Amino acid sequence: MNDLNIAIVSADMSRLDGIGRALASAARRLQVTEMKCTPQRLGALASQLAADILIVDCAEGGDNAAALTSLEQVGMQHPRMAIIILSQCESADFLIQAMRCGVREVLPSNADGAAFDAAIERIAAKTGRSGDQAGRSGKVLAFASCKGGSGATFLATNLGHALAEQGAKVALFDLNLQFGDAALYLSDGKAATSIADVVQGIYRLDEAFLKANMMQVSPDFDLLAAPEDPALGLEIKPEHIDALLALATRHYDYVILDVGRNLDGLTIRALDHADTIFAVVQASLPFVHGAKRMLGIFQSLEYPTRKIELVVNRFQKDGALTIKDLEAACGVSIRLTVPLHEEAAEAAANQGVAVTALAGGSPIAKSLAGWAGALLGKAPAEENHWFNRFSRFNRILKRA
């Protein structure tokens, strides 16, 4: 494996030394260069930079807008160089603005060697230089809501159940940490434990400990619930998501992430791991507006277009907006639609039972079963326009 060239920039010499010591513990070989400079002046020195990864220390405050403008100039001159910044600011707005300026990773100002190592491995994986892919087998599917009420949680939970019914081993992580209720769609009782319990014992993390804290929906479907107390969600960090997904993808065929609508450092980290992100919309103008904003954010995060799929939930063929209307408005092709069938969906949600188990003959259950079958590469049981479109897409993915 070739060495990675790392350049560190900070206005504080002691910080430069500290970051250098943290990088010294990395699992891969690194060539590290240190440069004493403020982030705001870095644009003027862009021509002097030559590295695979640039680590910029913004921990001492200053003008963040000027620093990001400077980094954008650096990124334009060195488009193949990945940028990591260290900052005390971790708001969603700052993270998105940073990503739009070409920053790949935002780490806390006190990041340790393990955090640097994980970030470097994520960047290396995106650029095809990772040495840590052999242990992974499961696929990660993330569900994001383009607007509140899209039905993303309903689809995530019910697709998970449909996959398990067809023989896949499935885990679902409810990462809507303040308002997550995925367990209610699959059970009439509360989950006894949650992701917060796993994080509190993260030093014990192994397959047995993870499963002990999950709700068993069926023999092949486990769910890790969001905490009942929203305050406990604040204790969950992006590095915990790294550890959980590294373990889960070794033991499950599919790991489904319900990330809700809010994008922050934790949910962005989760989306980084996803093989496919299903952005859920409905056929109305408010959802179209939300979809366009979310697609713009995903573009800023440099997610490849093949990673993103718009899913139109509660779709009616005779509705005011057609698929062509939605495609024209959002600027992307739509390959996935799930039909409206309020009776079956409401009955399943109210009883805490998957719709494929409660009303297997309903249009929505058939659609979900077809979706699961397409993901698993199975032939459709019957001719279906929706399924044929998705099946062709699935075959394309398999060749990619």
Rank of each mutant, 00 (worst) to 15 (best):
N5Q: 11
V9P: 02
S10F: 08
G18K: 06
A24E: 08
A24L: 03
L30F: 09
M35N: 09
C37R: 13
R41N: 07
L45M: 13
I53S: 06
D63H: 12
L71F: 07
I85P: 05
L86K: 09
E90I: 04
A98D: 02
G102Y: 02
R104W: 14
P108E: 11
I123L: 15
S130C: 09
V140N: 10
L141D: 05
A142F: 14
A144I: 13
A144W: 13
N158E: 06
L159W: 09
A164I: 03
A168M: 08
L172A: 02
N176M: 02
N176F: 01
A182S: 14
L186W: 04
A196E: 00
V198P: 01
E207D: 07
A212T: 03
Q216D: 03
A231Y: 08
D242C: 13
D242V: 09
A243E: 09
L244G: 11
R250E: 15
D258Q: 01
V259Y: 10
L266Q: 12
D272H: 15
H273Y: 15
L285W: 09
V288L: 12
H289I: 11
A291E: 11
I297M: 13
F298Q: 04
F298D: 03
S300P: 02
R306H: 10
A320Y: 02
V338A: 11
P339Y: 12
K366H: 06
